[in-house]
Simulated assay, not measured.
Amino acid sequence: MSDKSDMTHATRPVTPTDMSRRDVLTLAGATASVSVIPTLIDNAAMAETVAVSATVPVSFKVNGQQQHLNIDPRQSLLDVLREKLDLTGTKKGCNQGACGACTILVDGKRIVSCLTLAAMYDAADITTIEGLEANGELHPLQEAFIKHEGFQCGYCTPGQIMSGVGCIAEGHTGSAEEIQFWMSGNICRCGAYPGIVAAVADAAGRA
């Protein structure tokens, strides 16, 4: 009789009343993990697919050459110029629009390219420092920068020159003070400002 009772007890299914609180929590956690893992895998695969396919076509002219690209819509114009087109003359300084090292011309107007999404400039005409020379000859402002020693380390120089070209085109070169004001968005940490102002004034006089 006792043997039969023991056998019945041994084979009886475990009921919730036989399980401890720890057993219940462990079982629930394991069940949840099994159900969540496929979802996580699906989400990761979906994110990877979106990352690969989420590009937009853009077409613009850079230094006289038409460019057709597929880009991440989150990419700045600066990054596209440097990483997609290998135009590394345009420098990445603060990457916050505060130093002016990334200044370029878009449709003749100067902008800081680090704060500009490339996808916004479809069909634009873009000029970088590499596009200033013509037939192997330096731009007059480039020559003036050399003549007046408007640089020291040179890191900010491409942005300074591009901003200077824009400043001259805008007609803001009536005096040294006016040039200083309209070039104030371009920082030179070496302090070569006297040479920069002199170079812009010189090139403006020959424009």
Rank of each mutant, 00 (worst) to 15 (best):
K84S: 15
H68L: 15
D107W: 00
T128E: 00
I71L: 01
A101T: 10
E83C: 04
R74Y: 09
S59L: 03
G64S: 13
T103C: 12
G64P: 11
M120V: 04
A119Y: 00
I111K: 00
T90S: 07
A54K: 03
Q75C: 13
N70S: 15
G64T: 06
L81D: 07
F60Y: 14
C102Y: 02
T103E: 09
G93C: 12
S113A: 14
G136E: 05
G108V: 11
A101P: 09
N135E: 12
R110P: 07
I126D: 03
E137M: 04
K61Q: 15
I104G: 01
A119L: 06
A101M: 11
G131Q: 01
Q65S: 15
D86Y: 04
A54N: 14
Q96G: 13
G93Q: 06
G89V: 11
R110W: 04
C94S: 13
A123D: 15
A119W: 00
A118S: 06
A118M: 03
C99F: 00
L69Q: 08
T116Q: 15
T90V: 05
S76P: 13
A134R: 07
C94N: 09
L138T: 07
D72I: 04
S76A: 14
R82D: 11
H68N: 15
F60V: 06
C94V: 10
V80N: 03
Y121M: 02
F60K: 08
A98F: 01
K91A: 14
L69R: 02
G108F: 04
N95H: 13
A124N: 05
N70L: 14
T88S: 10
L77S: 07
E130Y: 03
D122R: 05
A98W: 00
V80H: 02
R74I: 13
S53L: 15
V106H: 01
D72A: 05
K84P: 09
Q66A: 12
R110T: 06
N95C: 11
P140K: 02
L69P: 06
S76L: 08
L132T: 08
Q142H: 09
R110N: 12
V106N: 06
G131F: 01
N95M: 11
D125P: 10
S59F: 03
Q96M: 13
S76K: 06
D125L: 04
V62Y: 00
C114E: 02
P57S: 15
I126P: 04
A123E: 14
G131C: 05
L69K: 05
G108C: 12
T88L: 03
Q65W: 04
C94M: 11
